[in-house]
Write a protein that binds this DNA or RNA. Structure first.
Lengths: 196, 196
DNA sequence: AAAAAACGCTAACAAGTGTTAGTCAATTTT
DNA sequence: AAAATTGACTAACACTTGTTAGCGTTTTTT
């Protein structure tokens, strides 16, 4: 019944999704074709449909996998006993780390969600709005407690999320800056700012 | 010879590019079709080719228009007699303002440049790399002069550019935050940080 | 008024799209 | 060993893609 195949301990479906994530990032969801994907998997295009239901399903799987991962983490941070600043720092660090070692997935959830079919699109956007709202609440609390500057919480959330998601254009110059250095530099900036 | 048409003082070619920019942003370059565009312009698809050479040409026009605008501004800032912090502030403010009133164009130059055909793609990436390098130089100078924190300049540039380009997901909630408020909040954060 | 250019249209092209139907060998379950 | 499932294949479908050819009308230039 359960079909375990291919190189590593992964279903063929997982292999397809993994290859698709690379392809979707390189070419964009719309420009990546199933025949293209099939070639990377080493199979004919029609054979893909023995494992998946549609092209869109792949996108859904990726987007919601990412969304759930972030949401789960947020819930853990919310109930933890840290200062609001530390909470934000934890979240920032998680985003950076996920960006670094699940680059393709995060990129797609960040940039290709527009191509989700309804009702998944609305669902995804609701989750995203909810996530941002709750990040904003942490910042609001931080301001009220005098731990943070008086800044529009929504703008702050926007800056933080955009900044970490922008790591994608850093990808190629990995050599010049190490991963840990990048992380600490980003945290430093996002918490303490540019001005001395 | 010169053909001045349509509502405002704009060539039909300009109308096409304007409509295209909205379409490309909504659907992505790959998913937006010429027939789709033609309908928005109020013409048959084939007729578009009396004004443009190809779909790709539209993308090129948009991307390089934006790139040149930013580059021109950077050159002005570079030769000005401001502190490095003020220089960065000027640049940040310009980015935010352009994002607000040329949203569609900037978005496309930010997100759809991948679909540029060679040799335009390389050209565009070179310009972008150059732009970022020079922003980094300003920050490097700021650090050397003790005006800025000791932070990897490239990471700082990344954060700043990503943050301003992230305004796109703010677009719909314009009502809650005014444009000036957004600008001052972003500048405040990006210069002074989150921590009090 | 004549010549030329601009610009809309319809029809068509070659190529590519996601996806389904149906067949057959390999593998797993009974 | 028999039966059932899995999963690969080829062919094909209905449709969309960007783009060109060619015709005819309107607008501009001479």
């Amino acid at each position: 019944m359960a079909k375990i195949q291919s190189k590593k301990n992964s279903t063929k479906k997982e292999v397809i999704i993994e290859k698709a994530s690379k392809l979707f990032r390189e070419k964009g969801f719309g420009a990546a074709s199933m025949r293209d994907l099939a070639e990377h998997v080493g199979v004919e295009a029609a054979s893909l449909y023995n494992h998946i239901q549609s092209k869109a399903e792949i996108l859904q799987t990726i987007c919601f996998k990412v969304a759930n991962e972030f949401m789960t983490n947020l819930e853990q941070v919310e109930v933890s006993n840290q200062s609001t600043l530390k909470k934000m720092e934890s979240i920032i660090r998680l985003h950076i780390r996920m960006m670094l070692d699940q680059y393709e997935y995060i990129y797609i959830a960040d940039h290709e969600w527009r191509h989700l079919p309804e009702p998944y699109l609305s669902n995804f956007l609701n989750q995203r709005r909810n996530y941002r709202k709750r990040l904003g609440d942490i910042i609001e609390e931080g301001i009220a407690k005098g731990e943070m500057k008086h800044i529009d919480p929504y703008v702050a959330v926007l800056i933080i999320l955009s900044a970490v998601s922008g790591i994608d254009s850093w990808q190629r110059s990995r050599k010049t800056t190490g991963a840990e250095a990048l992380e600490s530099n980003m945290v430093k900036y996002l918490i303490e700012g540019l001005k001395k």
